[in-house]
Design a protein around this nucleic acid. Structure first.
Lengths: 181, 181
DNA sequence: ACATATGTGTGCGTCACGCATATAGTACGG
DNA sequence: CCGTACTATATGCGTGACGCACACATATGT
């Protein structure tokens, strides 16, 4: 009466719905808290957590936009003073530097996200949390594409929470075992 | 060295990343397979799975758009012949009916979604799947808002897979125990 | 019947993109 | 050196998917 086929579909469907709700809620919370588009929020987060002072082009690669789209995005971030353009040794590049107010905005984004997640997971017992942690880690690793796509996948991540630097981030661990650097 | 506080944040962060990737991938797959906006895909799915022949206004409520936005959305669905407008007993309402080709489009959306999910969950053992099923169910129920929001939360769901009619959908179960109807 | 509420459609503006192209700076082969 | 090819950034312009304000048509209640 419950062939495994349909069990699989059941779990998959549930997971799809769950991912959708959580992504919706975090996107809403982020947008409310930063008054910026989802892309701009991702840019703030990336600038804050991953990239020191990247060029527009690097940001473009991370966010998966066209160059013109990225230029306009940087315009939008520059306008409220979240970011300043600087030009480096290579005169073609314009480097994007997060300002203090930009860092604050990035923090608002991050804490909006983590509130949603905290509330969502609050119904779980400590045991369930541990189990979910392990399963989510396996799923994430399975969903990795090229090492380059990791930054996009982990956009909006809170690096402190994920514990990348203490080797507690499964994605970073899997990425470093793939790469030779 | 690993206070529970940080464990919580770790799991939450992982879940956030996971939800983001899965939502991204399904959205991409759906957009590729239907050549429609995410909203339009959600509308096709809703029309196919939940609503028989709703008015524009009901669709508006489910999708969370403005009326004008919904009107334009229906225009976009009518254009390739996915949907036809009919007028019912109440002359103010225009009822939206899915055509055969619209049903096919909705099926493409659904199978694009389930492919992504199937692949994502393919790394799990049967045991992990069962555990994840239970945890996802609890999380989803915890994330329910009003009963009215359920249809939005479950947009894109595959009703066959979720087993709503056999009482195997935790969300539907929780909703019916809340409502009096 | 007539005011009021409700549902649909239209004009118009906006935001976040993409594409094509212009401009400026760099690298390299002669 | 000097021109050619390349690369990064910026700008003009178009588009899709919205929202807001408003017009119009249809119901409902007194």
């Amino acid at each position: 009466m419950n062939p495994p086929e349909s069990e699989h579909a059941h779990t998959e469907n549930l997971m799809g719905a769950l991912a959708l709700v959580i992504a919706d809620r975090t996107a809403d919370a982020i947008e409310d808290s930063s008054r910026q588009s989802p892309t701009a929020a991702a840019a703030l987060s990336a600038l804050h957590q991953f990239l020191g002072t990247p060029s527009i082009d690097l940001l473009r690669q991370v966010l998966g936009l066209t160059s013109s789209g990225t230029v306009r995005l940087v315009d939008r971030l520059e306008d409220p003073g979240y970011v300043t353009r600087r030009t480096g040794s290579d005169g073609r590049l314009t480097l994007i530097q997060l300002t203090a107010s930009g860092r604050r905005a990035a923090s608002r984004v991050s804490s909006a996200r983590s509130s949603v997640l905290r509330e969502a997971l609050s119904v779980l017992s400590p045991d369930e949390r541990r189990t979910l942690d392990a399963i989510a880690a396996r799923l994430l690793v399975g969903l990795m594409r090229g090492p380059g796509a990791v930054r996009w996948m982990c956009r909006l991540c809170d690096v402190t929470a994920c514990g990348r630097d203490q080797g507690r981030c499964p994605v970073a661990a899997a990425a470093s075992s793939t790469e030779t650097s």
